[in-house]
């Protein structure tokens, strides 16, 4: 167990059950996990193993059916939807597989968008946006529209959007899924650099190659965590 004070995220006995057509689907069962500050965590696993559900819960997009979740020493499992939205906005940065940039906003406006709702002053906002765009080397494209950019560039803008608010943690769901291998590697390099600079990251991927960028990786299989050799943890 790492130093208690350094733990950013702590999941204890997380279960997630989906009810579909009177049938229970157990997406996660009894997951225990923690992410420390400054870590680059990779969650691996085949499709359908519950990776995305896991990330949804970590990113407060979804609530676990049962279990405890503390983010930065604060219990977040019991919060209401709008409280979760607020925390998402301030403390979590999201990077999606399909970039999800807003088509009729420019690069600058896309990155600025989440900051708008944090009460940051516009001058401060501008600084933050520029800083984030410079970090992903997209500063020169800030006036462009997303449709004018390549996939790799769009994903870099998405990374900048996630970074701009200086979140506690960056969550990425298959960030390379829609990219060719060259661009994919570039994005992973970028994430790695961010980690080196001190950012905490958690990515979900089914591609083992990219797991090597991470400082630590866990494997999910049928909703349960297994260690690197596919043996149940704790068994």
């Amino acid at each position: 167990m790492s130093n208690e004070n350094n733990t950013l995220i702590k999941l204890t006995n997380i279960n997630k059950v989906f009810l579909t057509d009177d049938m229970e689907t157990r997406a996660l069962s009894g997951v225990d996990m923690h992410i420390d500050n400054g870590e680059f965590m990779a969650i691996n696993g085949p499709s359908g193993c519950g990776k995305s559900t896991m990330l949804s819960i970590i990113g407060l997009l979804d609530t676990p059916t049962s279990g405890e979740y503390t983010l930065n020493g604060r219990d977040v499992a019991s919060l209401s939807a709008s409280e979760r939205a607020r925390i998402r906005n301030k403390e979590v940065g999201f990077i999606f597989q399909s970039f999800n940039l807003i088509g009729d906003l420019s690069v600058y406006e896309n990155v600025e968008l989440p900051l708008t709702y944090r009460g940051t002053k516009s001058s401060a906002r501008k600084e933050l946006v520029m800083e984030a765009l410079e970090k992903v080397d997209m500063g020169h494209r800030m006036k462009h529209m997303p449709s004018q950019l390549s996939g790799g560039q769009q994903q870099r803008v998405a990374v900048a959007r996630a970074l701009a608010g200086k979140p506690q943690i960056l969550l990425a769901d298959e960030p390379t899924g829609n990219l060719d291998s060259k661009n994919g590697e570039a994005v992973m390099d970028l994430l790695k650099n961010l980690n080196d600079e001190g950012a905490t990251l958690c990515i979900v991927t089914h591609d083992e190659r990219y797991s090597t960028y991470a400082t630590r990786s866990v494997h999910l299989f049928d909703g349960q965590l297994v260690d690197g050799d596919g043996v149940m943890a704790g068994v």
């Binding site: 925390i87 906005n89 301030k90 999201f94 999800n100 807003i102 968008l113 709702y117």
Partner: peptide
């Protein structure tokens, strides 16, 4: 969906 995920009200 993106906006909601980013915590925009």
């Amino acid at each position: 969906a993106t906006s909601l995920a980013l915590g925009i009200p």
